[in-house]
C-alpha cells in the first residue's frame, strides 16, 4: 500500500490530542493527508501541531469546542486558510463520558454528553457538507462505540449519544450518497486509552473476560479502520458501522 494514498486530501479530526483521535490523526498524516487535529485548549492544539508536524508537512493543530457553532465555523475557516481547502475527510471523534446510573443522572450530565458526542457531529457535518457536495467527493467517519449497540449500565447518556451517531450517519449517507460522499461509523470496543483507564478494576476485568481476543484494543487498531474508510478502496462503502472490538460484540 502506498504511503501517500491520501495525498491531496484534507482531513479534520476532532479530539486529536490523545487516545483514539491522536492515533487517527497520525495515521491519516502518515498516509499523506494534510491533517488538522483539534483539541479543546490552545496548549493541546500546539501539542498536536508539534506531534503531527514532526511526522508530516502541512499538518496543523486547532483549538475547537465542538459544542459551540462559532468555534466550529472558525475552525473550518482556519482549515481552509492554512491547508488550502475545506476538509475532504471529516472524522468526528471528540467524545466524553459522564457515567452515572439513570436514577442518579443529572439532566446536565445527559445534556453535556449529547451535545459533545452527538450534536457536535451535526454541527461539523453540516459545516463540511457544502464543500464536499460541490466537490462531489468527501468522506465522513463518525466514531461511535460498542456500547451504542450493546448498551451498558451506567452509560445511558453515552450509549444514547453513540447509538444516535449511527442513525445520524445512516441518514446522512442516504442524503449525500448521490453526491459521491460516503458516511460511515467506526465503533470501537474496549480500547486502551485514558477514558477506559478510568474504569474500576472489577469492571475492567469483567469486560476483558467478555472479549474473545482476550485483550484491550489499541488506538492504532481503530485508526486503521478509520483510515481504510477514508481510502479510495472504500468508495463503495457507505452507511455502515465497522465494529473493531476484539469480538466482544458480534453484529
Amino acid at each position: 500500500m502506498s504511503d501517500s494514498i491520501l495525498a491531496g486530501e484534507i482531513a479534520l479530526v476532532t479530539g486529536a490530542s490523545r487516545g483514539i483521535g491522536a492515533a487517527i490523526a497520525d495515521e491519516l498524516a502518515r498516509l499523506g493527508a494534510k491533517v488538522a487535529g483539534t483539541a479543546t485548549t490552545e496548549t493541546g492544539a500546539a501539542r498536536i501541531a508539534e506531534r503531527l508536524g514532526a511526522a508530516a508537512e502541512g499538518c496543523i493543530g486547532l483549538c475547537l469546542d465542538v459544542t459551540k457553532q462559532a468555534s466550529v465555523d472558525a475552525a473550518l475557516v482556519a482549515v481552509e486558510e492554512q491547508l488550502g481547502s475545506k476538509p475532504t475527510i471529516l472524522v468526528n471523534n471528540a467524545g466524553i463520558t459522564r457515567d452515572n446510573l439513570l436514577m442518579r443522572m443529572k439532566e446536565a450530565e445527559w445534556d453535556a454528553i449529547l451535545d459533545t458526542n452527538l450534536t457536535s457531529a451535526f454541527r461539523l457535518c453540516k459545516a463540511c457538507a457544502r464543500s464536499m457536495t460541490k466537490a462531489r467527493h468527501g468522506r465522513i467517519i463518525n466514531v461511535s462505540s460498542v456500547v451504542g449497540v450493546s448498551g451498558n449500565a451506567g452509560q445511558c447518556n453515552y450509549a444514547a449519544s453513540k447509538a444516535g451517531l449511527i442513525g445520524f450517519s445512516k441518514s446522512l449517507a442516504r442524503e449525500l450518497g448521490p453526491r459521491g460522499i460516503t458516511v460511515n461509523v467506526v465503533a470501537p470496543g474496549f480500547i486502551d486509552t485514558d477514558m477506559t483507564r478510568e474504569l474500576p478494576e472489577a469492571q475492567r476485568d469483567a469486560l476483558l473476560a467478555s472479549i474473545p481476543l482476550g485483550r484491550l484494543g489499541a488506538a492504532e487498531e481503530i485508526a486503521a479502520a478509520v483510515a481504510f474508510l477514508a481510502m479510495p478502496a472504500a468508495a463503495y462503502i457507505t452507511g455502515q458501522t465497522i465494529h473493531v472490538n476484539g469480538g466482544m460484540l458480534m453484529v
Binding site: 457544502r130 457536495t133 460541490k134 442524503e175 449525500l176 448521490p178
Partner: peptide, 11 residues
C-alpha cells in the same frame, strides 16, 4: 430536481 438539487441550486 430533487431536494438536494434545490439546495445546490441555491448554493
Amino acid at each position: 430536481a430533487d431536494s438536494l438539487d434545490t439546495v445546490e441550486l441555491v448554493m
